[in-house]
Nucleic acid binder design. Sequence first.
DNA 1: AATATAGCTGTAAGCGGTTACAGTAAATTA
DNA 2: TAATTTACTGTAACCGCTTACAGCTATATT
Lengths: 337, 337
Amino acid sequence: MATIDDVAKLAGVSIATVSRVFNNSPLVSEKARQKVLKAAEELGYKPSMPARSLAMKKTNTIGLIVPDISNPYYAEVVRGIEDVCNIYKYNITLCNADNKREKEFQYIEMLKNRWVDGIIFHCDYFSKEHYEVFKNDNIKVVLAGRTTKFDVPYVGIDNFKAAYDAVNYLVSLGHKRIGIIHGPLDDMKETIDSVDRLKGYKQALIDNGLPIYDKFIKEANFKYKGGYNAAMEMLKGEMRPTAIFAISDIMAMGAINAVFDSGLSCPEDISVMGFDNIDLSEATRPSLTTVSQPMYEIGAVAARMLIKMLNGEEIDDYQIILKHKIVVRNSCMSSKK
Amino acid sequence: MATIDDVAKLAGVSIATVSRVFNNSPLVSEKARQKVLKAAEELGYKPSMPARSLAMKKTNTIGLIVPDISNPYYAEVVRGIEDVCNIYKYNITLCNADNKREKEFQYIEMLKNRWVDGIIFHCDYFSKEHYEVFKNDNIKVVLAGRTTKFDVPYVGIDNFKAAYDAVNYLVSLGHKRIGIIHGPLDDMKETIDSVDRLKGYKQALIDNGLPIYDKFIKEANFKYKGGYNAAMEMLKGEMRPTAIFAISDIMAMGAINAVFDSGLSCPEDISVMGFDNIDLSEATRPSLTTVSQPMYEIGAVAARMLIKMLNGEEIDDYQIILKHKIVVRNSCMSSKK
DNA sequence: AATATAGCTGTAAGCGGTTACAGTAAATTA
DNA sequence: TAATTTACTGTAACCGCTTACAGCTATATT
């Protein structure tokens, strides 16, 4: 591959001039610029990013750590991130950490050694330990899809409120026995979606004067099978819920099928509500009533915020809560009794 | 951040020795190694990748171009790729090209300037133009999920055979009027999944002595809505198919719902068969009978092949066809007549 | 006409590593 | 004991770029 020296030689100028041309410096005469451009064209020259990165201490790369790209939710967020990065000429380095601390820290270390300009971090659980790593290494980071009490920029939704609204909606349909399928609860007390959503669920019941039954609170792993099994258990025995709120669409799909496999129907016997509003939530039968998270926006806004930070631009608000909304489809109906 | 000079100074050795320690060179005494390691530890030193890349002309990065990561199929492939890259200490740079030539070439150019060691390329359509770009720039590339007549390494499945098998399966259930919802057909004559699958479909009908009706052949865009609309059209009018084969699960889901919305039921009135076997294909009702593509393996095998190429290792076969299989679930049943 | 200025250009010193090559001290060999 | 080999180690050139600084014209100013 042609280097800057080759171009300089062919154009009959110094490498400084070539460099200036490719950096749009005004300190180049039009004549020199043309000569350089012509020579570069002829040689098929483009500046080498690694060399440039080394000289400028800037890689134009953003590290992206997500739990698992094969989960449609994260995939959508990532798409939002990549789209805006592309606009601003940033590249992204994708890492799947499976929510494992060890992998997360390993990736952070790796990204640091690669001099990424910043990191967009998406985990199910942002701990003090995370906070300190980013802080100590002075890494520019924004959290996507997650909020935290720590002083870290983030773009997320109000999970408490979202769950609260969902349950309220169910109550407004006349449901009195409402179950929830939530995600893993870390024993630590940090902010985490599952916890917030569970709290929102409970608060909504309390505010509506409804009792909270332990039997109606099940933990699962955010997967289809997990949702299915949790719902199955909830549905057996005599007292069963009339509505189930699963905190991810995929688990909700599992729940719907559990309803069917229990010999009941959805939404006639049991209403099921999801969370996320992934693409496929309109494709199920019944289509899924769910809490919509603006996944693409979460990614896009997070990326834009990080890029602004990298440019040293002023930012109004480092902690952004995007709006959720209830998307009514066919998996919930009024309670018969 | 600490540099190699800092470490050398603190350890009381030359930077060459430090470098050797971090490259596991045998040319270092145990004593020196310990001193260096201790100093590095103390300073929190890790070699800078950009500097190393420049010196060694190797970035340990693989470029990854896919149409759209938010599509579960590609997300799964990418997951496979990332997992094996991670094992071999490669990072991936993710690019979404939306199957647009212009974006693809733009990304290829960008990846080249970034000195990626190789590219894994996933597009719906691999043209001569693509071939030449990779060839001329001497870029190490492997195609994932796609076959081609060009002399380029790839990992894919036999699309013709897969569609052929699918239709045969439907025929074996007694279906005689079988529709297909295929993907976009480029007017060029290159190898492309949609074309191969369509050919497989036709050949299977021919081999079974069944007529080919134009009305039963619909084009869509690989999206839910596209599948829905195509099926809707196919189902209106008097003569309708008894089975529909959609060449992606997502379109099949659209088709299933179109069946319902046409006042018919699936699989009782109309059988629907999909393609891919994405995670959620077991979550629909009825769950989807489909042709399973080993998506994760396609990604993993492609990545492993590329890395072998980068290491200059011998490779038995540069063009690998992975096995598909028919996954029988509940969306297809014997034809009533 | 002498001087100041503007506008451009090139030289050279980095950026943080790798590695060829030469050098040195200790261990082997003759 | 001298010569050779072995086992390290350091110097310096290089990877391809950016940029501070100095220098050089041509023009403007007085």
